[in-house]
Amino acid sequence: MQRAIQGSPPGFDDLTVHEQIEYVQGLWERIAAREDEVPVPEWHRAELDRRLAEYEAAPNAGRSWEQVEADLCTRLATRR
């Protein structure tokens, strides 16, 4: 049996891994429902500003999702 994580709710460690994942997912959904209360670190905001400025300076420099997805599928296929 695994060591109980300090602060976990009673009985959490007795749940299966699948049940623990469902529990955590439920907690996350409750938090996400109040997104205006979730703190966003300043460095996240700065990174978003940097990326937006980079995009606005050269909007055609990136690749479409379809191009990226096709490349990923090709790379994964060659690994098999």
Results as ranks from 00 to 15, higher is better:
E42D: 10
A70H: 13
R51H: 05
R63Q: 12
Q20V: 03
E22W: 05
W28I: 15
Y55K: 06
N60I: 05
V40T: 03
E66W: 10
Q20G: 02
D36I: 05
L48R: 04
D71Y: 07
R75S: 14
V24T: 11
S8G: 09
D14R: 15
E42A: 05
L52Y: 11
E42H: 02
V40F: 00
R79A: 13
V38H: 00
W43T: 14
V40I: 05
R30V: 10
L72Y: 15
T78L: 14
T78Y: 11
L72C: 14
I31E: 10
D13Y: 09
G7Q: 03
E56L: 09
R45G: 07
A57Q: 06
F12C: 00
P39Q: 00
E22I: 09
E47P: 02
D49G: 13
F12P: 00
A57K: 07
D14W: 12
D13H: 15
A58Y: 04
T16K: 01
A57E: 04
D49M: 10
R79I: 07
A61P: 00
S64L: 12
L76Y: 14
G11W: 04
S8W: 09
G26M: 07
Q25G: 06
P39F: 01
G7P: 01
T74P: 04
V38D: 01
G11T: 04
Q25W: 11
L52H: 07
C73L: 14
R50K: 05
H44G: 05
L27Q: 10
W28K: 12
L72P: 09
P39S: 00
T78F: 11
R63M: 08
E47G: 03
L15I: 02
E42Q: 06
E35I: 10
L27K: 07
I21V: 15
G11F: 04
A57V: 02
G11S: 05
I31T: 10
R34E: 09
Q67C: 11
A53Y: 02
E37V: 00
E56Q: 12
E19V: 01
W43G: 10
D71K: 13
E19C: 00
D49F: 10
E35L: 14
T74C: 12
A70L: 11
R63C: 06
Y23H: 10
E47M: 06
P59H: 03
E19Q: 08
L15K: 02
Y23T: 11
P41G: 00
P59T: 02
R50L: 04
E42N: 01
H18Q: 13
E47R: 04
P41R: 02
C73A: 13
R63V: 09
A32L: 15
R63P: 03
H18V: 12
R75T: 08
H18I: 11
G62S: 01
H18E: 15
I21N: 05
G26Y: 08
A53S: 05
E54G: 03
G62V: 02
Q20M: 07
A61G: 05
E29L: 12
A46F: 08
R30G: 09
L48W: 06
G26N: 13
T74E: 13
Y55Q: 04
Q67K: 12
E69F: 12
Q25T: 14
